[in-house]
Design a protein around this nucleic acid. Structure first.
Lengths: 233, 233
DNA sequence: GTGACATATAAGTCTGACTTTTTATTCCCG
DNA sequence: CGGGAATAAAAAGTCAGACTTATATGTCAC
């Protein structure tokens, strides 16, 4: 996915990134560039580039005479798509999935409200199309097709919100939804109520009813939270 | 702020990062590593490290035989604190400030609701303390002291939400609030209504009233949106 | 114990040579 | 004249080695 093997330093990151985010090196662990270069059988320059990238993600800190120190989790750039992907791929997956779902529950309703005000006619049409696609694939175990339209739907909402920061979460939502379909329990067809809600959101946006679009999306995200047993009784 | 001059490559980034995020090099512009190295009077290895960092922020893409291509804005890692800082420092400041304020309006109410459920007694106490600090400095042009407690208040809420991704936005909120106090119009004392709301949020969290904490925080963020003339009539 | 000094260590930097990939051009054949 | 294969060129990528610099730590005098 995304950008595999874009150079030697990327190859190193593919191993080191997941290892660090998985907690294999506890916060405070000290690595040495030369040693890492030997381990990965790359030159020091390549290793340094990899370290620089990890540093820009605030996963590690490089200091003279000390080495490359692994930073505590609270320092990490948890919004970096690469970091998110690494964590979703590792043992921290469930926790990462919860964090992201809570984030969705905060963002998406507001995004939908904004979209109802700002969506272009084209985006409204796209939204309706996506919702219809979800309906058409909501039964008969057409999970992949359903997922495709679901992802597209949420992407359009986030983009139509007109907020670049919301739009940037499209990839994250895609990853969460894909995860739900592939990894987690999702043998049965999707919840018909959820499908209906998507259709209604598309209608609300088209009708420029911001409050309704927001409320309906809130119901969708509440469903997502319930699936993960988040939510107090 | 944060980490100034952490090596030569950092120095280069301090110039190149703001330049790119400010749009000085339009999307699609091609730079050459050697040329850049000469311009900044650093070795190619240092320049390469800088490029790697920019690449990890998705500001540029490096390809063989082509050079370093500046990516369109929609590709940028707009959640990267460094990118946020660069953009806040440049001509795009107003737009960035709006994006961030809308983001806050989505996140903070939900965070407050969660905090009402999950905050430790210590965090509740901290919150009350911050709110009282705001009250104590809400008149007499004690803007700096007020800001200090305001920032602390929002930080505690975000942290107490128990969601790492929310917690990570503490720095962003700090930057927005600081910006409002320093750069933008804020000659007069803070709005008494806003101060009261903060006190009430602290009370609601202490009382474990999630719905109330969320609603009150929503009112705070609506105020922030209005200050920037966001919000449809 | 405290403060100044010496030392060792690991990151940081620079240079130059070489490799690899990809694009553009040339050239030959149909 | 057109198209496709061979070729050349350009820029990033990689590597090795030598040197510099900051700094943690240990040592010694006081």
């Amino acid at each position: 996915m995304s950008t595999p093997g874009r150079g030697l330093h990327g190859r190193v990151l593919d191993t080191l990134g997941p290892a660090i985010t998985a907690g294999e090196y506890p916060a405070g662990s000290v690595l040495r560039t030369d040693e890492l270069a030997q381990r990965f059988e790359v030159s020091r320059s390549v290793m340094r580039e990899a370290v620089r990238v990890l540093e820009s993600m605030h996963l590690v800190e490089s200091r003279r005479r000390v080495g490359v120190t692994v930073l505590p989790e609270c320092e990490w750039n948890v919004y970096d798509p690469q970091v998110i992907r690494w964590r979703l791929a590792g043992a921290e997956r469930p926790r990462q999935l919860r964090s992201l779902t809570v984030l969705r529950s905060a963002i998406e309703p507001v995004a939908a409200g904004l979209a109802a005000r700002l969506a272009t006619p084209e985006q409204c049409a796209e939204l309706t199309e996506c919702a219809l696609g979800m309906v058409a694939n909501s039964s008969g175990h057409r999970l992949e097709e359903y997922l495709f339209h679901d992802v597209a739907f949420h992407r359009v909402v986030l983009t139509a919100s007109g907020n670049e920061m919301f739009a940037r979460l499209g990839g994250v939502v895609a990853e969460v939804l894909a995860g739900r379909t592939h990894h987690d329990v999702m043998f049965e067809d999707p919840d018909p109520a959820a499908v209906t809600l998507h259709v209604q959101v598309a209608e609300a946006v088209r009708a420029r009813d911001a409050a309704r679009a927001e409320q309906l999306t809130r119901e969708i995200t509440v469903g997502a939270l319930q699936e993960l047993d988040i939510l107090a009784p």
